[in-house]
Simulated assay, not measured.
Amino acid sequence: MNKQAKPPATKLTQDPHALRDQREKNLEVAIGRQVRDLRKRQRMTGSDLAAVSGLSVGTLSKIENGHISPSLNTLQVLADALRVPFVQLFSGFDEPRSAMHVKAGEGVEIDRAGTRAGHQYSLLGHIGSNDSGVVVEPYLITLTDESDTFPTFQHEGIEFLYMIEGQVDYRHGDRIYRLAPGDSLLFDADAPHGPEVLVELPSRYLSIITYPQQR
């Protein structure tokens, strides 16, 4: 009997092992390097950018070499001339990046908006305002014989579930998925979703919700 051929692996566009260019710790140097890189990408000479921005070639050279600290107005003029968002001129600067380590059993138990009776939510970490534009909320959810079934949760964003213990029939839209340990489910959280049948208790699963950061 011929074994069923495996579907071809999906090729991802992002390299998980890629290294980013080292970030500059001096703000003036970081801005100057970014202006120069953006100018070169657009195949503009220093004279071209000076003409478009209204700055002198000498001033532009000092900015690109990090020798002066340009005003906010000058930076806005350069951003307009380079046709990029203002904040992109700061993208090479080495800002602190947050991390949060939560030891086993130390997740913060919270009452999340819309929480149903008997649904225990342990928040496993939280990073506030950041440059990614995305909020990520990781939860460890525990269901017991005191838990309600509630298959009509709805909220913005994308949600990922990973089943750790027990079994549940989990609804998403008009489909039901039997989730057992090791199973995962990734879905658009705007559709009605949630545990419809608690098959084997206690059940525990990891829920990671991502949604756009409110600016």
Results as ranks from 00 to 15, higher is better:
97 R>A: 09
169 D>A: 05
107 G>A: 05
10 T>Y: 14
72 L>A: 11
144 T>L: 02
31 I>S: 06
202 P>F: 01
166 G>F: 04
48 D>Y: 03
95 E>F: 15
61 S>L: 07
92 G>L: 14
177 Y>L: 01
2 N>E: 15
70 P>V: 11
115 T>H: 00
182 G>R: 05
201 L>H: 05
180 A>N: 08
128 G>V: 05
204 R>F: 09
82 L>P: 12
129 S>L: 12
20 R>P: 12
80 D>L: 13
71 S>F: 14
44 M>W: 10
42 Q>P: 07
168 V>C: 01
72 L>Y: 11
91 S>R: 13
151 P>Q: 00
56 S>A: 07
212 P>N: 03
17 H>Y: 15
44 M>E: 04
46 G>Q: 06
79 A>T: 08
104 A>C: 07
159 E>G: 01
206 L>K: 00
32 G>H: 12
52 V>P: 00
29 V>Q: 15
156 E>A: 08
98 S>Y: 09
104 A>W: 09
176 I>H: 00
195 P>G: 02
97 R>N: 09
47 S>C: 01
113 A>Y: 08
33 R>D: 12
35 V>C: 06
38 L>V: 06
9 A>H: 12
119 H>Y: 10
128 G>N: 11
138 P>K: 06
53 S>W: 00
133 G>T: 11
51 A>I: 02
109 E>Y: 09
4 Q>W: 11
130 N>W: 03
69 S>P: 06
142 T>W: 00
192 P>C: 01
142 T>G: 02
131 D>T: 15
175 R>V: 09
193 H>L: 03
80 D>T: 13
206 L>D: 00
149 T>M: 03
110 I>H: 07
174 D>S: 07
121 Y>D: 03
1 M>N: 12
36 R>S: 10
106 E>A: 09
112 R>Y: 14
207 S>V: 10
139 Y>W: 11
182 G>P: 10
99 A>F: 14
169 D>I: 02
157 G>D: 02
139 Y>K: 06
50 A>N: 01
160 F>L: 09
34 Q>V: 10
113 A>C: 04
168 V>E: 00
70 P>A: 07
163 M>E: 01
100 M>F: 11
198 L>N: 03
4 Q>N: 13
138 P>A: 04
57 V>S: 02
200 E>K: 08
51 A>E: 03
81 A>Y: 13
107 G>W: 02
40 K>P: 12
63 I>F: 08
75 L>I: 11
58 G>V: 09
201 L>S: 04
89 L>H: 07
55 L>Y: 01
52 V>H: 02
15 D>E: 14
4 Q>Y: 11
97 R>E: 12
170 Y>N: 00
111 D>C: 08
49 L>S: 04
129 S>M: 12
1 M>P: 14
197 V>R: 02
126 H>L: 09
125 G>L: 07
159 E>P: 01
1 M>Q: 13
183 D>P: 05
179 L>E: 05
189 A>C: 05
185 L>G: 00
48 D>S: 03
191 A>M: 10
75 L>Q: 10
111 D>H: 11
19 L>S: 15
100 M>E: 13
203 S>F: 00
119 H>D: 07
209 I>L: 11
114 G>P: 13
8 P>C: 09
27 L>R: 14
208 I>F: 02
96 P>Q: 01
107 G>D: 03
108 V>Y: 08
190 D>R: 09
